[in-house]
């Protein structure tokens, strides 16, 4: 495109600004709704304990060389023995855990609340944007960009001849969706910002079997070779003192 497209100022007044304002308002509204629906959840004792066991086993693995061999062996047996070791998961239980999680009505309820506060407004706004503003070129960024940005900035316009620095309205919606976090943390306070990207990560993390990480930790603890680091320290201490004395 040799000459510039001239954008109507009405587009700015009726598309660009309203879209941003609506996104902000929806973010704020969603924050209050989710605050209303939030239930203080009592953590499950088993999950808390498992997390702590894993942290402790990891510490043991990382710093094994700093304790005497006898102590290390005692701990290894404590964690790994086949009867009642902390990391040992009985075979039958491994499958149950997940089923249990789904059958727990509280969990399902919580999931639904999360979904309600996240997915529904998102779909609605997306549908709204799509319905009213599809195919708009809503803004122009003041610097040129390479072709790779086309899919990011011109979502919804299938014209390969439009310069990439023009932003379509649907892309503007996406930019707002992911870019307003800073603004929310200003309005709602530091920790209260509704962070979509983080929440999506959490969602995808759901369903991971906690017993699996126990098993993995057990295996890696099994193969740790214990080599006591302390005898080396005597020489090192000697060197340190020699330097100090001289």
């Amino acid at each position: 495109m040799a000459e510039d497209l001239v954008l109507d100022t009405a587009i700015r007044d009726w598309v660009l600004i309203p879209l941003s304002v609506v996104m902000v308002l929806i973010g704020v509204l969603r924050y209050f709704v989710s605050k209303l629906m939030r239930s203080s959840q009592v953590p499950d004792s088993k999950i808390v304990r498992e997390g702590q066991v894993i942290v402790r086993a990891r510490n043991l693995r990382a710093a094994a060389n700093y304790i005497p061999a006898k102590s290390f062996r005692a701990r290894k047996v404590y964690f790994n023995n086949e009867e009642n070791g902390l990391l040992h998961v009985p075979k039958g239980q491994a499958q149950n855990a997940q089923a249990q999680m789904f059958s727990d009505p509280n969990m399902a309820m919580d999931m639904m609340k999360k979904n309600l506060s996240m997915i529904i407004p998102q779909t609605l706004t997306f549908a709204w944007v799509n319905f009213f503003f599809s195919g708009f070129v809503a803004a122009k960024i003041p610097f040129p960009l390479t072709q790779r940005f086309r899919s990011m900035l011109q979502n919804g316009i299938d014209l390969s001849t439009v310069d990439v620095s023009y932003v379509s309205s649907r892309s503007w919606y996406f930019l707002n969706l992911f870019g307003l976090r800073g603004l929310f943390s200003l309005i709602l306070g530091e920790e209260n910002a509704t962070d979509d990207t983080q929440r999506m990560m959490q969602m995808s993390g759901f369903g991971v079997d906690p017993t699996k990480s126990l098993g993995a930790e057990k295996d890696s603890l099994d193969i740790v070779q214990h080599e006591w680091a302390l005898p080396k320290f005597e020489q090192r201490a000697e060197a340190v003192l020699r330097k100090l004395v001289s």
């Binding site: 005497p68 302390l230 005898p231 320290f233 005597e234 090192r236 201490a237 000697e238 340190v240 003192l241 330097k243 100090l244």
Partner: peptide, 16 residues
């Protein structure tokens, strides 16, 4: 003997 080793490591970690 173990105690001595840990004293030594303390010296090393504190720079004497």
């Amino acid at each position: 003997q173990t105690a001595k080793k840990y004293y030594a490591s303390t010296i090393d970690l504190t720079g004497g």
